[in-house]
Design a protein around this nucleic acid. Sequence first.
RNA 1: GGCCCCUUAGCUCAACUGGAUAGAGCACUCGCCUUCUAAGCGAGAUGUUGCAGGUUCGAGUCCUGCAGGGGCCGCCA
Length: 583
Amino acid sequence: MNVFALASEKLTATVAAMCADKVLPAALDLSRIAVEAPRDPSHGDVASNLAMVLAKPAGMKPRDLAAAVAERVVDGHEIVSADVAGPGFLNLRLGDHVWWRVLDAVLTEGRHFGDSAMGAGRKVLVEYVSANPTGPLHAAHARGAVVGDALAALLIKAGYEVLKEYYINDAGAQVDTLARSTFLRYREALGETIDAIPEGYYPGAYLRDVGAALAARDGARWRDMPEAEWLAPVRAFAIDHLMAEIRADLAHLGVEMDHFASERQLVESGGVDEAFAALETGGLLYTGVLEPPKGKTPEDWEPRPQTLFRATDFGDDVDRPLKKSDGSWTYFANDIANHLDKYRRGYGDMINIWGADHAGYVKRMKAAVSAVTDGGGVLDIKICQLVHMMDDGKPVRMSKRAGNFVTLRDVIDSVGRDVLRFIMLTRRNDQSMEFDFAKVREQSRDNPVFYVQYAHARAASVLRHAGDMPADPAARVAWLTAADKRHLTAPDELALIKVLAGWPRLIESAAESHEPHRIAFYLGDLAAAFHGLWNRGRDDARLRFIVDDAPELTRARLALVRAAQSVIATGLRLIGVEPVEEM
RNA sequence: GGCCCCUUAGCUCAACUGGAUAGAGCACUCGCCUUCUAAGCGAGAUGUUGCAGGUUCGAGUCCUGCAGGGGCCGCCA
């Protein structure tokens, strides 16, 4: 149950009744009415701007209109008071039993509390990670992986049908370089001495494993053949090998993709030609010469006619080339095909999670999606800003060139999957963040993961001490919902229930804005409210959850504890973190 | 040179997509504490939201310009 929806229905019903009574004109536009929690709890439980939005069409002053609605909306039961404040806000206060009902809803709905029908089963494709298959995932991939995965889970909870997809860049020059680099390691595995890795090859030691595996499978078969013979099979072998590692690393992080899309397969099956044809049919291609980028002219720049896409018609800054000088497709052309393919698979809503290095690419991709789907497809792109890896305040040096970058696997092994996942959501995606190995392992109030986990474990501890409570889950829910909630009237008890009541709304707003970090922040707030209640018991034993000589009071409080624990657990699981029973 | 993101308390960051007196944590000061779980609790103080304009009942949020930080900028992906 969603108290904001409840209040919203009450308010619109009241306005409708006033229209019917001709107090207000008919056919008012109610779409801009907001019903939300006021920032300051002293203003009430629910606030609405309806009087300010409707004032002009209704021909009334906002405060007068608000007062008229206030008078009619109060029923002394669910809405116990309505006040006009400021320029015309309508502040509602809900009856305590509304909150008690929320508590029962949390208990009976369990992990389904907060599920929303908002998505109405609409299909959404979330593409994330999509790292090149030329090496293991490194630390910088963690953020996109976690943000994408949590967003996907969030959208599922909000009622969307989600496909989690990884786009494998297995078609460009980089995978040819991978093949050649692997071939060196293959010869090495066959006994040759490789003095130095030539310039332009991948030097990473991880390719030794790949070379050795190839030698183990095929022996010396490729060694003396010309490159044209071995390039494709070695490339395929290396990609398969590295993708298997990438999948294993993702699994280690708790990320399970639904689908892996191959760029090469897309190209070979004619997907790019189709996208090209679609653009050509729309008259969106022409041959032209681009200006060199100002202030940074490449040394070998020479004006050259190219096949260009009219990206500027769709909000981009310049038109973009689709073919390289050797006649092959640009990465952009392939990616257009990738997105057209998504669209044709039924995914009109697409979300891509990208790293900061791709930020300059956003406009053209959105332009392309708009063009190639004739406006039918919508692409949202979330840019994950850089993560600065630190250890106790000192930057962790990473050099991809030297091949000594920190792998994703290293980070997971070092701090644990749960910590990594949670921390990656403690910043908005478009904000850069520090990740300090020492700090995230710290067990203190400063560490948000610890703080939230501790709240869950504390709740579990209380429930373990509750002697009367049935152990069987169904019986326990029945026992807790049957508790007399009239014992829960203290302001901070109600405050905790109000935080719980905000969960369904948080799911919807986070899903709508594609911002999974809000879950982590919400859990921090919820944990704070719970710890606050706990701490009341330190000074006054009567304020503890379990009061020995007051079984009915205890039972009601246990219902609150269990409800808080349940929402914390649901929230943690939603972002892929396992709640702990003990710490 | 161009484009994108960012700039909020001393520090690290929020702010429910335009709402009311901009909030947390850390650090700081004072007091308390050893528990249903020890890794703490309570109280206090903290602001020209980078700067200058604009839009409107109302702007941290939207539009323009400027400054600073980061990222990117045809034939890499």
